[in-house]
Amino acid sequence: MSEHKNHISSYKSQVIVLLSLIVLTVLTVTITSVHLGPFNTAAAMLIASVKATIVLLYFMHLKFDEKIYRFMVALVLAIYVVVIIITFFDNLYRP
């Protein structure tokens, strides 16, 4: 974690990030209003994950920070996903 000069995000890039987030939000509302069965939830979650990734990378600056932060975030999220999967070993297979 060596210190290096801070990256300064431009105003323009932040506006672009916001616009893409809003587009994705509108998209998710539109998609879920069409009846796709279980794919609705999958699509909504997928879009939410994309949005979250954008926020993490740009607004929360992970893209420009030292690798260790990205590594830590990935690790924490991975552990959390594994915990959910293991919990569902119970609920999926309960008689």
Binding site: I79, V82, V83, I86, F89, D90, N91, L92, Y93, R94, P95
Partner: peptide, 21 residues
Amino acid sequence: YLVWGHHMFTSGMSETARLVF
């Protein structure tokens, strides 16, 4: 972090979960 279920073998948890844990 991933082994908590071994406290729950008799709780009514599913067979699969018991084996995994």
